[in-house]
Design a protein around this nucleic acid. Sequence first.
DNA 1: GGCGTTATATTGGCACTGTCAACTTAACAC
DNA 2: GTGTTAAGTTGACAGTGCCAATATAACGCC
Lengths: 206, 206
Amino acid sequence: MAKYHHGNLRNTLIQVATELLAEEGTHALSLRKMAQRAGVSHNAPYMHFADKEAVLAEIAEEGFRLLAIEIESAIATAENSTYERLIAASNAYIRFALDRPNHLQVMFRPYEVEKYPNLLLASQAALNCLFELVKSGQENNTLIAGNTHQMTKSIWAMVHGVAVISIAYQTNMLLPENTSIEDGVASVFVGFLLDGLATKKSVPEI
Amino acid sequence: MAKYHHGNLRNTLIQVATELLAEEGTHALSLRKMAQRAGVSHNAPYMHFADKEAVLAEIAEEGFRLLAIEIESAIATAENSTYERLIAASNAYIRFALDRPNHLQVMFRPYEVEKYPNLLLASQAALNCLFELVKSGQENNTLIAGNTHQMTKSIWAMVHGVAVISIAYQTNMLLPENTSIEDGVASVFVGFLLDGLATKKSVPEI
DNA sequence: GGCGTTATATTGGCACTGTCAACTTAACAC
DNA sequence: GTGTTAAGTTGACAGTGCCAATATAACGCC
């Protein structure tokens, strides 16, 4: 833990950047501002990051790790049924998105994926929480058979769509009034989807 | 059509801005660049727009109008069943998103909604295409009864989620290889959701 | 037609941004 | 203890959004 000039500027920077992101939004997040708040010169960040995009990628990566943790813990504390757990995971995702809209926005920027392999890995790790859930649902016959990956991604797309749109309109325009996000997710959105994925249907074709 | 100095700079600007957006991405879109390409001074845009955000809002609004048109025409040329039409509409949405990822990104920025009422209206108009479809599906008993708005928004969230995530990873990571977007949407994502919304199921509860 | 008013556009400037190049300083290897 | 190298600084540059002051063209009105 030897200190050179600053210490571990790299970590400090992404931490400070995350703070600034939450406070002022993506738009106002600048390298110079984060350098200033970290107490270093305006060019110090370039010792640790190739450019601004690289900083954002790192913030995004951290975001996915955080998201994974929240989803995991939501699953862990939910009741022991696939349905309950899927709803809990979905709720965790949407709560994350509404709590940290700016962070989510950074997580889904159009990065050049080949440049940030760790970012891709982190996002896949988060997705994997859902995957395991779907798999176990299929194993205990709660969910229909089928390509587990695609079913997982269906749920992800659905939940993510709800999150993004809710953020965009800065209000639960997706939900009827007096409905909490949690209730909305459970009863409406994911509910519909899960109906499509659930077993115990007679005539699925429309 | 009297020309003052330029003519109708306002329209020219959003047209030029849309071009630049498609060419260079959100990040590189600047007021000065669009002014230059429109052949006016760097401050001319301020005659017609309060600030950069206002320009983006207008571009976004135009985007929703375009999206609505594409969805409408997709519905019009699809076969005459609710299922086929919903799939067609979803495909149109996703095609739009993949053709104009930057435009879609601008459409879903975190605007201050109260500042841009027309933007909200345009987005609702686009959504309304889906709404009518769902409604007719309920009327001809193809879709389950229930809050039409919420069912519509479920589909929207789903499709939008697929679109956003596909853009973010710049590849159809959501779909198995050798699957076209169209097939993927039809057979996998929206398909699952529609199963949940379809009638003719015996035991919907999981 | 001439004139004032007003919308439209320009010039110049400011603070701020990302990034580059050149320089300085501190840590470590030997 | 000295040289090498990583870490951080200073200074600069072009580009950005936006503001203030100025110019110019169109229009209504007489």
